[in-house]
Amino acid sequence: MGGLVGDIREIIFETLRSSLPKPVEITENTHIVEDLGLDSVAVMDFVMEIEDRLDISVPLDKIAEIETVGDLIAAMQNLRAGS
């Protein structure tokens, strides 16, 4: 079951797209707060969607370290690998 790098990446892109009010081009370099205009709570809410999809819990200090979509993918992969 899951855990493949491509799967996690795809799930994150898909979740991110569906939680934004309007379509924005997203790459791994996209800055979550600056480029997407999400506030701290919106970021945590969006991470919740991914937690559900991957059945993992992401500690808040990990979320705080995430700046780009690439960081997010890496963090999720690490957590998934560790669980």
Binding site: M48, D52, I56, S57, V58, P59, L60, D61, S83
Partner: peptide
């Protein structure tokens, strides 16, 4: 208060016993 301490902190969906259960199950 959560940030002041050293524990691992996670949040569950507002007022959702189901999500709380998910979090505890993962731990």
């Amino acid at each position: 208060g959560a940030r002041l301490g050293y524990a691992q902190v996670t949040r569950f969906r507002h007022n959702s016993p189901e999500d709380l259960d998910n979090r505890l199950r993962r731990l």
